[in-house]
Design a protein around this nucleic acid. Structure first.
Length: 200
DNA sequence: CCACGGATGCGCT
DNA sequence: GCGCATCCGTGGA
C-alpha cells in the first residue's frame, strides 16, 4: 500500500528522466476531505540548465522559490488566472521540475465534475490548469511535500507496464522560448492527452 | 477536427 | 501597460 508512494529518490534525478518516469503513475489529492485520483498521461520537463522556458532561469524569487527546494515537493504557480502543478526534481538549490499536463480520471469523478462545472470526462483533467481545478490544487499546495500521503502525492501504478512504444516525446506546448526541445512526454493515443492530436 | 480571439490575475517594466 | 508553462466559445472545413 504505502510502498507504492513515490519517494524522494524517485524525484532526485533530472527533470527529463522524472518526466518520462511519471507517465503511468497515479496522482492523488485529498483536500477538504475529498479524495480524487488519476493516471498521469502527459508531462513536461523544465531543466536545470540551458532551458530559457524554465521559471528558474532568473534565479530564486518569491514566486518560484519552491522550484529551488528539495526534490519531491510541489511547485504550483499561477498563470492566466489559473494554476499549474509541478513536481520539483533534481538537486536542492538548482531549479528543475516536471509539469503535470494531463491525467486520466480514476477516482472521484463526481467531485471533479462539480469542481470543474462540467460533465464531459475529456474536459475534466486534459490540461495543466484543468487538472489543478479538478484536484483542487492552488498556491496553498506550493512547496508541500509530495512524499507523504498528506494532501497531494504520486503513487506507482502496479497495473501499468511501460510499453516503450506507447511513450512519445514531443516539443512542449505553449512555451515561447526553447520551443524545439523535446521535453513533453505523452502516452500515445490516450484520450486525455491535451493539445492538438498531431503533436502525439 | 482545427484556428482564432477574448478573458482572466499576477508580477514585472 | 504587457507577457504569460491557459481555457473556452465560436466558426469554418
Amino acid at each position: 500500500m504505502s510502498s507504492n508512494l513515490l519517494n524522494p529518490s524517485f524525484y532526485k534525478r533530472t527533470a527529463k528522466e522524472v518526466a518520462r518516469s511519471l507517465i503511468g503513475t497515479i496522482l492523488v489529492s485529498r483536500i477538504a476531505g475529498l479524495r480524487v485520483s488519476g493516471m498521469v498521461v502527459e508531462t513536461e520537463a523544465y531543466l536545470a540548465t540551458r532551458d530559457a522556458a524554465s521559471h528558474g532561469t532568473q534565479g530564486p524569487n518569491r514566486k518560484n522559490r519552491s522550484m529551488f527546494g528539495p526534490a519531491g515537493r510541489a511547485y504550483v504557480y499561477p498563470i492566466h488566472a489559473r494554476y499549474c502543478f509541478n513536481a520539483v526534481t533534481g538537486i536542492e538549490g538548482i531549479a528543475s521540475a516536471v509539469l503535470i499536463r494531463a491525467v486520466e480520471p480514476i477516482d472521484g469523478i463526481k467531485v471533479m465534475q462539480q469542481r470543474r462545472q462540467r460533465e464531459s470526462l475529456k474536459l475534466l483533467t486534459s490540461g495543466p490548469a484543468r487538472l489543478c481545478e479538478a484536484f483542487a490544487l492552488n498556491r496553498q499546495q506550493d512547496g508541500i511535500s509530495l512524499t507523504t500521503r498528506r494532501t497531494t502525492w504520486l503513487e506507482q501504478n502496479p497495473a501499468f507496464t511501460a510499453d516503450p512504444k506507447s511513450l512519445r516525446a514531443t516539443r512542449r506546448i505553449g512555451v515561447t522560448s526553447a520551443k524545439n526541445l523535446k521535453l513533453r512526454f505523452v502516452l500515445r493515443g490516450n484520450l486525455f492527452v491535451s493539445g492538438p492530436r498531431y503533436l502525439g
